[in-house]
Design a protein around this nucleic acid. Structure first.
Length: 845
RNA sequence: GCGAAAGUGGCGAAAUUGGUAUACGCACCAGACUUAGGAUCUGGCGGGGAAACCCGUGGGGGUUCGAGUCCCCCCUUUCGCACCA
């Protein structure tokens, strides 16, 4: 230990120590409880940013704590290394995506090591390497064999910036998830889809299993995304035709109020219906125009309702009413059946549509008035969507909503013109990407034998190198004859390979399984290893993956479970979604997320050079609780540095006496008040921090508790002056400083190690399970200052012994001058005593 | 529009089940040490007032002995969803 706190020197020293001692490298060990601490793996964009620093500081704090509590902690790191930026860099810099990516990984790995994050680097993975993506292909084949994958020509989201297709989850709100200012357009393409919808119900049910462990916000977003709705399908016969139109509704109880059947412009029955119709050309022209309109605009909530009457009529199976068949812009082909019954009285969209075209509006649901009678409105000004009972609905009149729905659905089933059904909003996951830098899809097309998967023993289908990437004109792999041309695996005649690559979200769906067995070349992983480590105990990452990665990976593990590769339903027990790192930006005049384009970026490297990794990490944890956005403030960083230097100086001042100190302090009754005070603070701090790690993980308050302990220890030290300390004093100080060093380790591990060593300990903090324990008796206050209220207002405080009984406390309160003054001449109505907290005297007059 | 979360000093934030509002840090002020300090140490720091005391957690009501915390209404901000039948 040196006199002054030199983070650079200390950090290099301990990083070397951890590497030499393989401190963070772990193996399954049945004798110890495991803890899997995982941070979302980064995309190797080139440099670490503050968001990463925050993410990994949180994860490492927890990992250190758990290790110190004796857990066998798996804390790995890897790279989500496929993806578009590598291709763009290749175009811009004339580099190969692989070279660019691997160089970035090298640089970022070095940065993470400089931060001293405790990863088991022997388990590092990079998804762009064949020994990883081989298993993506293996999973593809398994899913193909089980019918979980299919190829379909369909309208898909296309991002003109990415020049590729996007999954629905990646095109939320009609914009690309990477290019949020770029509207996604619709294209018709052949695509590989994973049957995410097979697991829709299970994914929904799982969100209830995850309650408590996952933020409610994320669960809500996932539930909304899955979008389960219960309803019914009802068949409407078309008059003078054999055609039947099936509609989906969640409100079959309102069917007597239907005034039309409305179809999406893409509906397949339109052509049939319009055959021989004098309106044929007009209607088809209308539908074609809508189909060609921008989908996002056409289907946005504020688009004007627009429709056309087809001249055809459908029959309401409940009452035989003749309903005109319309086509309208607001009906979506991909939801339900692409056809609805319009019920203007009880659906605002139908109301607006009917008003626009003068269709009749009838009320069929009536709220109950104060006499319990159904209230029938005169003219309706808007749709009534509240609850009530049926009216104008023949024999169903008087039934309340949920019962009517049930009974009418049952009736439809019995009459064979409808049935109850559940509909989900979530769609299958389109994974084809018309890009180069991704996992090749292991499929071969033969003109004679059709579509076939590449046999397992021929995996991986390697991504060819030195491919010319222009960013234009379809899949780059299609331009590589050596890759495309192959022979049919069945008939040996010339055949072609699939030239699309997989969505990179495939890579990240199972990477944390691979960390458990990263070098396995026989299987994606050995189940005995994942059985030990998984599920993940704590996952930490940004909220932006709430419906992307976090839904895909839940699906993936359910699929793996069905393949017999794991035994659990949910792969991630607890999830922490950390807030963004923000800073004031001149360009917008307020505190916003750090971004290069706004110029409000701090480079972690600069921070580390100026203050050290410990200070940088400490501040990232101290400035705000982890799930909140964090305001980066350089002055605040200095405060973090001062705290570490202050703690360090105190340890320096005392470290020489430590080897001679008594191991345990005297009985607390024999301590001076000052000694007792520091001892109490030490034990209180251990209690606070330990409990906080176990439930709330608010690192900011844990660090402030450590600051308080340091302040208290300084006061103690200052009071001693130049007097030579007695053995008890040294023992009390030793306990305080050792506790401090140990509890600092999760937040500032290098400085903590240096202090721990300075206090006379060899081998490093993690050579044992050293998390300090507190003694509840020693943490307890001997004396308390109890606030005294009169009529709820604070009037005074009284000092009493901690074990005071109610009666003496009351006496002490009434003995107080200020309390006397406030209660003088008044009748005491009531005295409320909250043990150890407060006394409130209620007076009258 | 629907849904969720939040609003506390000059600033970042504490207050875990209703019980001393503002812990801890930053900034600021005063002092000590110093050739000097952007180092370190000591003290102060919500508003009003000489004081007693009064006021104070976005605004207004309510429940309670007692409300930052619970309930109702409103305002603002952020986030999510948005013609999903």
């Amino acid at each position: 230990m040196r006199e002054k706190y030199f983070p650079k020197e200390i950090e290099a020293k301990w990083q070397q120590h951890w590497a030499d001692n393989h401190t963070f490298e772990v193996k399954p060990d049945d004798s110890r409880q495991k803890f899997y601490c995982l941070e979302m793996l980064p995309y190797p964009s080139g440099r670490i940013h503050m968001g990463h620093v925050r993410n990994y500081s949180i994860g490492d704090a927890l990992a250190w704590y758990k290790r110190m509590r004796g857990f066998n902690v798996l804390h790995p790191m890897g790279w989500d290394a496929f993806g578009l930026p590598a291709e763009n860099a290749a175009i811009d810099n004339n580099a190969q995506p692989e070279t660019w990516t691997l160089n970035n990984i090298d640089h970022m790995r070095a940065q993470l090591k400089k931060m001293g994050i405790g990863y088991d680097w022997t388990r590092e993975i990079a998804s762009c390497l064949p020994d990883y993506y081989k298993w993506n292909q293996w999973f593809f084949i398994k899913m193909f064999e089980r019918g979980l994958l299919y190829k379909k020509r369909s309208l898909v989201n296309w991002c003109p910036e990415c020049n590729t297709v996007l999954a629905n989850e990646q095109a939320e709100g009609g914009v690309c998830w990477r290019h949020t200012s770029t509207a996604v357009i619709q294209k018709e393409l052949d695509q590989w889809f994973i049957r995410l919808t097979n697991y829709a119900q299970e994914l929904l049910d799982g969100t209830y299993e995850l309650e408590g462990g996952w933020p409610e916000r994320v669960l809500t977003m996932q539930r909304d995304w899955i979008g389960r709705s219960e309803g019914a399908r009802v068949n409407f016969k078309v008059k003078d035709s054999d055609a039947v139109i099936t509609i989906f509704t969640t409100r079959i109880d309102t069917i007597y109020g239907a005034n039309a059947i409305v179809l999406a412009p893409e509906h397949i029955l339109i052509e049939t219906l319009m055959e021989d119709s004098p309106l044929h050309d007009k209607v088809i022209e209308f539908a074609t125009r809508l189909k060609n309109e921008d989908k996002i605009e056409r289907t946005s909530a504020d688009a004007k309702k627009e429709g056309i009457y087809t001249g055809r009529v459908a029959i309401n199976p409940f009452n035989g009413a003749k309903l005109p068949i319309w086509i309208a812009n607001f009906i979506l082909m991909e939801y339900g059946t692409g056809a609805i019954m319009s019920v203007p009285g009880h659906d605002q969209r139908d109301f607006d549509f009917s008003t626009e075209y003068g269709l009749p509006i009838q009320q069929v649901i009536a709220p109950l008035d104060e006499n319990g009678e159904p209230a029938v409105f005169g003219e309706m000004k808007e749709a009534f969507t509240g609850s009530g009972v049926l009216v104008n609905s023949a024999e169903w009149d008087g039934l309340p909503w949920p019962i009517a729905n049930e009974k009418m659905t049952a009736f439809a089933l019995s009459q064979k013109f409808g049935e109850g059904t559940v509909h989900y909003r979530i769609r299958d996951w389109g994974i084809s990407r018309q890009r180069y830098w991704g996992t090749p899809i292991p499929i071969v097309y033969c003109d004679h034998c059709g579509i076939m998967t590449v046999p397992e023993d021929q995996l991986p289908v390697e991504l060819p190198k030195n491919v010319v990437i222009t960013g234009k004109g379809g899949s780059p792999l299609a331009q590589v004859p050596e890759f495309v041309n192959t022979t049919c695996l069945k008939c040996n005649r010339p055949a072609r390979r699939e030239t699309d690559t997989m969505d990179t979200f495939v890579d990240s769906s199972w990477y944390y399984f691979r960390y458990c067995d990263p070098k396995n070349d026989k299987a994606p992983f050995d189940k005995s290893k994942t059985d030990y480590w998984l599920p993940v105990d704590q996952y930490i990452g940004g909220i932006e993956h709430a419906v992307l990665h976090l839904i895909y990976t839940r699906f993936w593990s359910k699929m793996m479970r069905d393949l017999g590769l794991c035994d659990f339903n949910e792969p991630i027990h607890r999830l922490l979604t950390q807030g963004m790192v923000c800073m004031y930006a001149d360009k917008v005049g307020r505190v916003v997320k750090m971004s290069k384009s706004l110029g409000n970026v701090i480079d972690p490297d600069d921070m580390i050079s100026a203050f050290g990794a410990d200070t940088t990490r400490l501040f990232a944890l101290f400035a705000a609780p982890p799930e909140k956005d964090l305001d980066w403030n350089e002055k605040g960083v200095e405060g973090g540095f001062r705290f570490l230097a202050r703690a360090y100086r105190l340890v320096w001042k005392w470290h020489a006496q430590m080897p001679q100190a008594k191991q345990t302090a005297a009985q607390s009754s024999e301590l001076t008040p000052a000694q007792r005070k520091l001892q109490r603070k030490t034990h209180q701090t251990i209690k606070r921090i330990t409990e906080n790690f176990e439930d709330r993980m608010h690192f900011n308050t844990m660090i402030s508790a450590l600051m308080e302990l340091v302040n208290e220890a300084y006061d103690f030290d200052t009071q001693l002056g130049d007097k030579a300390p007695c053995g008890t004093t040294v023992a009390i100080m030793r306990e305080a400083l050792e506790s401090l060093a140990l509890m600092l380790a999760p937040f500032a591990p290098h400085a903590a190690e240096e202090m721990w060593e300075g206090l006379g300990h060899q081998g490093g903090i993690l050579s044992g399970a050293l998390w300090p324990t507190f003694d509840a008796d020693l943490a307890r206050d001997d004396e308390l200052e109890i606030p005294v209220q009169v009529n709820g207002k604070l009037r005074s405080r009284v000092r009493v012994s901690a074990d005071v009984d109610e009666e003496s406390l009351k006496q002490a309160a009434f003995a107080d001058e200020k309390v006397k003054a406030a209660t003088a001449g008044k009748e005491v109505v009531k005295i409320i005593v909250v043990p150890k907290k407060l006394i409130n005297i209620v007076v009258k007059g």
